[in-house]
């Protein structure tokens, strides 16, 4: 596999841009670095969900549950709530594991379901998890109910804390770099999975489950694997979310979030990693951009506010989604083209 000079230069340029990005954003305000961090979290979630929906073709409307599991695992093991303060590099793998188990638990009873039925069951699962978080405060106070868990530890390596500012390195910028590294790892993992024996089995099941069975694939195990893998990514993202926010409550894990993540996957192009990333970026940034432009634009045009910015923002957002799905039903950047590229790469 030879990398051309052009390829290498492009790679270096992207790397430099990604490293410089937070400082450029910080000039516009630290809020933009935070927004970017959340966008990266959503990319991670979308890539996780993409394994289930995009690769294996299993519709999951309760994906945010795994994000919640990861977040609460982190919150419980690194906050004054139980007085536990484990380091993040211990908790994140635990969160991935617990979320992965939760994925298998959701997967097991739903193996025979497909399409709409599967969507309904997973939707219910997502709600159940949220309701548990809301109510597991008595008789034994595990989750602290709707009030959520406060004062969650930030990431720390020795004396180096991710929450404090050191010179030009603000807290959000530190997290940005950490998230970037995790994102790179997740992209590599996803590409390798997609291009492996397991990845082929996922696609085969998506394409024709009966033929996949007859061709010798243990569809039960392979589907469970998809649920568990996808969920574990959600768990990792959840842990980072808890640390960055310093606070978790059941409110963050509502059905809307599941739908938003699914929209990112579908909009970008199910099954294609780069498409999914594009979808997640677009849907994360567009509302924010609109938030910052809708109000000034109206003032400039009409001299006063005609429509509440929040309403208009959601309207434009929804309209853009409908248009995309109308004119690019397979997503902005669908999968097949990518497949071809991959094949060419390998030769």
């Amino acid at each position: 596999m030879g990398w051309s000079v052009k390829h290498k230069l492009g790679l270096v340029a992207v790397a430099v841009a990604l490293i410089a990005l937070p400082f450029v954003l910080a000039m516009a305000g630290t809020a933009w670095v935070r927004i970017t961090n959340f966008a990266v979290l959503f990319i991670l979630l979308s890539l996780g969900l993409n394994i289930v929906v995009g690769f294996a073709g299993l519709l999951d409307l309760g994906y945010v549950a795994f994000f919640a599991v990861g977040a609460y695992v982190y919150a419980l093991l690194a906050s004054p709530h139980f007085g536990l303060h484990l380091p993040f590099w211990v908790i994140l793998p635990i969160g991935a594991l617990v979320a992965g188990l939760a994925g298998a638990v959701l997967g097991a009873p739903t193996l025979r379901l497909r399409g709409d039925y599967l969507a309904i069951v997973t939707l219910g699962f997502g709600e159940i998890v949220r309701i548990f978080m809301n109510n597991l405060s008595a008789p034994l106070n595990i989750t602290n109910g709707p009030k959520g868990i406060n004062l969650i530890d930030p990431f720390r390596i020795g004396d180096f804390s991710f929450a404090t500012t050191a010179g030009a390195l603000s807290g959000p910028i530190k997290y940005y770099y950490f998230l970037l590294i995790v994102l790179l790892a997740v992209i590599v993992i996803n590409r390798r999975l997609q291009d492996s024996r397991i990845g082929r089995a996922w696609v085969a099941i998506r394409e024709d489950e009966v033929a996949a069975k007859a061709a010798g694939i243990d569809t039960r195990n392979i589907k469970l694997l998809a649920f568990a893998m996808g969920a574990s990514f959600g768990g990792i993202a959840g842990g980072m979310f808890a640390a960055i926010q310093g606070f978790v409550s059941p409110e963050s894990f509502i059905l809307n979030e599941s739908i938003m993540i699914l929209a990112m996957v579908v909009l970008g192009g199910m099954g294609n990693i780069w498409g999914v990333i594009a979808g997640a970026l677009l849907l994360s940034f567009m509302p924010e951009l609109l938030r910052y432009t809708v109000e000034p634009a109206q003032k400039a045009l009409f001299g006063r506010m005609l429509v509440d910015p929040e309403v208009l923002r959601m309207l434009i957002f929804g309209f853009a989604l409908v248009l995309t799905m109308r004119f690019r039903p397979a997503g902005l950047w669908p999968e097949t083209r990518h497949r071809r590229e991959l094949d060419a790469d390998r030769k």
Partner: peptide, 29 residues
Amino acid sequence: IRLFGNMTARENVMVGRHVRTRAGVFGAI
């Protein structure tokens, strides 16, 4: 005929090797 329509011909046959091979998630990653 039940093929995996959106996979290439080669990939279709590669799926058939699944049952005689063993690489798992960790091997792939």
